[in-house]
Design a binder for these strands. Structure first.
Lengths: 159, 159
DNA sequence: CCTCCAGAGTTCCTTAAGGGAACGCACTCA
DNA sequence: TGAGTGCGTTCCCTTAAGGAACTCTGGAGG
């Protein structure tokens, strides 16, 4: 329902989930990623209401995650594609595929498989430290304040 | 609002976002991850309504993402901690931190920094192919059907 | 013993977001 | 000219989100 504005919080998780914190948005991005790019195709594939789909697409275009381009001017037709910002967001989806495959796939196994074009193998995404290259786990990480951390109001008033 | 049941879809993204597809849940997990474990602390830190917080916590415990344990029996007090399933889900949060830091941080820079205890350096999470170890990008991946892909109903009827 | 406080939820109420169905409009094709 | 397709809008109803106030339990303090 989103009465709270997560996008303004001083937290990259909140800001990301201001966009992704709503299942349809994630699924729209997934579909565009796998090549479903037109309104009606998306609507059929997802089973979402046209209203919600229209809203999500407009928001994603607004945010610069998707781009809307005409691929035919007569009749006017358009399609949605991922921008760089958008394909980068797909990483979050890939991380969630890894989790879902491990913890929510059940007996049937993963519903989809990922093939890395670089090496040609079936694979899954693994999170690694950008510095040392080791696999990252939640319990090997400490969080510290960064430059964009909030300045409490009582201090901000004095600036 | 979630009238649609994303958890039943044959898609690991949908299943993951059935849980995470709602900003408060992500923030609750973040807080538990950074060590905020008690109901009132969470409520104060997040500014979420107690009702929504109670609902989210109950659901996460139900799903096995969080565990609720008493840390004092007299007076009865409890705290929430991440299970293995939960800490694994934090990976998705780490991926979203990387995206948010890059695309939503603005001039101020990232609100928080991650230090990898393994190497001691400030770092960020990078997605890599579990097979060849190369960095994974959305556009280097092909998606194929997996064993858990849906069986269309007209076929399922015959089994 | 009586009152006060903290932790941890619950209950109630209002409002806005979700979902479906129908409508609109531009263009094409038989 | 009438049906079909692509892409949305509009209307209306229902349900969940959010806030505030209330409850209940079990110490502390005087």
């Amino acid at each position: 329902m989103q009465r709270t504005d997560f996008g303004e919080m001083a937290c990259s998780i909140a800001r990301t989930f201001d966009i992704l914190g709503e299942p349809w948005t994630a699924l729209v991005l997934r579909d565009v990623f796998i090549g479903i790019r037109r309104f009606d195709e998306l609507q059929r594939d997802l089973g979402v209401s046209r209203k919600v789909l229209a809203e999500r697409l407009a928001r994603l275009v607004d945010l610069g995650v998707l781009a809307r381009r005409g691929y035919s001017s007569r009749p006017p037709r358009h399609e949605y594609t991922l921008t760089e910002k958008g394909s980068d967001l797909v990483s979050v989806l890939l991380a969630s595929v890894a989790w879902g495959d491990r913890w929510a796939a059940g007996e049937a196994g993963p519903p989809a498989l990922l093939r890395h074009r670089g090496c040609g193998e079936l694979t899954h995404a693994e999170l690694r430290c950008a510095r040392c290259g080791d696999v990252l786990h939640a319990d090997g990480i400490d969080v510290e304040d960064g430059p964009g951390a909030v300045i409490p109001d009582r201090i901000k008033e004095r600036l």
